[in-house]
Lab assay of single mutants.
Amino acid sequence: MEVRTIKVFTTVDNINLHTQVVDMSMTYGQQFGPTYLDGADVTKIKPHNSHEGKTFYVLPNDDTLRVEAFEYYHTTDPSFLGRYMSALNHTKKWKYPQVNGLTSIKWADNNCYLATALLTLQQIELKFNPPALQDAYYRARAGEAANFCALILAYCNKTVGELGDVRETMSYLFQHANLDSCKRVLNVVCKTCGQQQTTLKGVEAVMYMGTLSYEQFKKGVQIPCTCGKQATKYLVQQESPFVMMSAPPAQYELKHGTFTCASEYTGNYQCGHYKHITSKETLYCIDGALLTKSSEYKGPITDVFYKENSYTTTIK
């Protein structure tokens, strides 16, 4: 009895394709271990004539594949690729409408935090270190965002349907971005203890939790000093293409032309909904596939993004 075979390709990165001759009487799992086709788990399936010449994702289970996976995804987590594939199996079914010149995501599976993050990423200057993220990001900007969303979920250790947080998501993504040249110098002034300067680099240099107003941050924000008295913390120097200011959701007025974009969060910790506000020729609110415009805006804002380049204080 002759062994019926077909020729397929296996890959971990969709760049390096490895030619395989597979036995049609055995499952993919018996031949390769966990195997995925377009995100779908085909591990328990036997090869079919229609699979001839198709590319299958496999887990990096030998040295060659491990090197290829690390170079593309910059992670050695053995569960990463499987999590990416199972997320992709959902995100490829989502709709990605162009809204006001940006790629958004039609609401499904509690994905409003991903839509808000995706919209924000198209408006701030950011370059990702893992080629996987950078490639998928370019495709997302062009309207094909399924891979990018699935990668975000995998890097953030999230599953489809789980509630997510924009600030946490951005923080994970910033860790995989090139923020080497970003720098922030802060000064804390206390009447009792004097003053202390701190220099922050990388992710810490672009994120701040405690106030939404970048102007206020430049002037000074009140913080408790270690001595128990009130101290003032203010920005001395900022070198970065953008800054992200966050605070627990509270009524906040966004003035046209003073910011790049913002995240609105309605609801409580267990259950809520994100919308995205962007400042173009007027203010726009993007909620999944829905767009509304207004000249002014007041609502429960939790993150505001500002364009920056270089700032030095005039406070002496």
Rank of each mutant, 00 (worst) to 15 (best):
E2S: 10
V3C: 14
R4Y: 14
T5A: 12
F9Q: 12
V12C: 08
V12Q: 04
D13L: 00
D13E: 15
N14K: 13
N16Y: 06
N16K: 02
L17D: 10
L17G: 03
T19C: 10
T19I: 09
T19H: 11
V21R: 12
M24C: 14
T27M: 12
Q30C: 15
F32T: 10
F32C: 10
G33N: 02
G33A: 02
G33T: 07
P34I: 15
P34R: 08
P34W: 13
D38K: 07
D38S: 09
G39L: 07
A40C: 10
V42A: 10
P47T: 03
N49K: 12
S50F: 10
H51W: 05
Y57N: 08
Y57I: 11
L59R: 06
L59Y: 12
D62T: 12
D62I: 06
D62H: 10
D63Y: 07
R66Q: 13
A69K: 05
A69N: 03
Y72N: 07
Y73I: 01
Y73F: 09
T76G: 13
D77M: 06
S79G: 13
L81N: 14
G82N: 11
G82D: 15
G82P: 12
Y84L: 06
M85K: 10
S86E: 14
A87L: 04
L88H: 03
N89A: 11
K93M: 13
Y96I: 06
P97S: 10
V99Y: 12
N100G: 15
N100D: 10
T103Y: 08
S104F: 07
W107E: 03
A108S: 12
D109H: 10
D109V: 01
N111R: 05
L114V: 15
L114H: 04
Q122G: 04
Q123W: 01
Q123M: 09
E125D: 14
E125I: 05
L126N: 02
L126S: 04
K127P: 11
K127Q: 15
F128Q: 02
P131M: 05
Q134S: 09
Q134L: 06
Y137F: 12
R139T: 09
G143M: 00
G143R: 02
E144P: 01
A145E: 03
A146L: 03
A146H: 08
C149Y: 02
A150Q: 08
A150L: 03
A150K: 03
L151I: 03
L153Q: 03
A154F: 01
C156H: 02
C156R: 01
V160I: 08
L163R: 15
D165E: 05
V166A: 05
V166K: 01
R167E: 01
E168P: 02
E168K: 15
T169G: 05
S171C: 15
Y172V: 05
Y172M: 14
Y172F: 09
L173H: 08
N178Y: 07
N178K: 11
L179V: 03
L179W: 07
C182P: 02
C182V: 02
C182H: 01
C182D: 07
R184Q: 05
V185P: 04
V185W: 01
V185M: 03
L186P: 02
L186H: 05
L186N: 02
V189Q: 08
C190F: 00
C190G: 02
K191N: 11
T192A: 09
G194E: 00
Q196M: 11
Q197M: 12
T198E: 10
T199M: 06
L200S: 09
K201P: 03
K201G: 09
K201M: 11
G202W: 00
G202D: 02
M207W: 09
M209K: 15
G210T: 01
T211I: 06
E215R: 04
E215N: 07
K218I: 04
Q222L: 12
T226D: 13
T226I: 12
A231R: 03
T232Y: 08
K233V: 12
Q238Y: 06
S240M: 00
F242H: 00
A247E: 04
A247F: 04
P248C: 14
P248Y: 15
P248W: 15
A250E: 13
E253M: 09
L254Q: 00
L254R: 01
H256A: 09
H256Y: 10
H256R: 12
F259P: 00
F259R: 00
T260H: 05
C261W: 03
C261G: 01
A262G: 03
S263F: 08
S263W: 07
E264K: 01
Y265M: 00
T266A: 01
G267F: 14
G267C: 14
N268C: 07
N268F: 03
C271R: 11
G272P: 04
G272Y: 06
H273N: 00
Y274Q: 00
K275M: 09
I277W: 13
S279Q: 09
S279M: 00
T282A: 13
L283K: 00
C285N: 09
C285E: 14
I286P: 01
G288I: 00
A289C: 06
L290E: 13
T292Q: 09
K293C: 10
K293H: 15
S295C: 05
E296T: 13
Y297T: 03
K298A: 13
K298N: 09
G299F: 05
I301M: 11
D303P: 02
D303L: 01
V304D: 06
E308T: 11
E308K: 04
S310F: 14
S310W: 08
Y311R: 08
Y311I: 10
T312K: 07
T313S: 14
K316P: 15
